[in-house]
């Protein structure tokens, strides 16, 4: 087995390093969730570290593992401080500009978006609706046309319903793959990181769901929280 080539940033110029990193950054800049953005960035960038200096090799890896854990709902108190400390130490203590540049980017993300990180860790919310662990897919009863397309694309078979019926997604088995969203022509499948509105408990014929009566009789307001 021949190993993959390592990048040797020590032999490269500051500009080459910055160009490389900003390219990676550009690829993620549109990612609306800062936690997921840092996770994606650190996962890509750790794979490119030459691996010789501790703070860069282990620091970016730790950022990657930490942010992934936060996006999966396992964030802990103190994680933000650790991310902040690692980023800062990388930015001042890395052996070369690769680590320093990665540190600066990470530091900027954590400083600018501290609140979003906190919401992920403490409230288990992803306001940008990116972190799958924190979002729930549901079928808006008033928009569903009962075409059954979503049910047919759903691989884990998490959707109940039939032709002409308002479909229902089972949040427990739903993998949040998003395939049903693509399949749904009327755009009835929505996601939320907070509470799910009142929905029918069983598939009912399209048109029979009246928001008022549903609200009153079928479900009470309930905030859904997923922390598992």
């Amino acid at each position: 087995m021949i190993g993959k080539e390592r990048d040797r940033w020590k032999e490269k110029s500051v500009d080459q390093i910055k160009d490389f990193i900003s390219n990676v950054y550009e690829g993620e800049v549109k990612n609306p969730c800062p936690v997921d953005r840092l996770k994606a960035l650190s996962d890509t960038l750790r794979r490119k570290s030459c691996g010789e200096c501790v703070i860069c090799r282990e620091g970016i890896l730790q950022l990657s593992v930490l942010t992934e854990s936060i996006t999966l709902g396992s964030g802990r108190d103190g994680d933000i401080d650790v991310i902040s400390e690692i980023s800062e130490d990388m930015s001042i203590g890395s052996a070369c500009d690769y680590g320093r540049e990665v540190g600066r980017i990470a530091k900027k993300i954590i400083d600018d978006e501290r609140e979003q990180f906190e919401r992920h860790i403490k409230r288990k919310r992803c306001d940008a609706l990116v972190c799958k662990k924190f979002i729930t897919y549901y079928v808006a009863p008033e928009t569903c046309n009962g075409c059954n397309q979503c049910l047919e694309t759903c691989e884990p078979r998490s959707i109940r319903g039939g032709e002409g019926l308002i479909h229902i997604i089972n949040p427990d088995s739903c993998t949040r793959c998003g395939d049903c969203v693509m399949a749904c022509k009327p755009g009835a499948i929505l996601k939320t990181s907070a509470s799910v509105p009142n929905l029918p408990k069983e598939p009912v014929p399209v048109g029979s769901a009246q928001l008022d009566s549903i609200q009153g009789s079928l479900m009470s307001q309930k905030r859904r929280r997923r922390s598992e």
């Binding site: 190993g3 993959k4 080539e5 390592r6 750790r46 570290s49 030459c50 691996g51 010789e52 890896l61």
Partner: peptide
């Protein structure tokens, strides 16, 4: 030498 693992880690 420092070598890349399959998971792109350096050891």
């Amino acid at each position: 030498d420092y070598q890349m693992t399959e998971d792109d880690r350096v050891m």
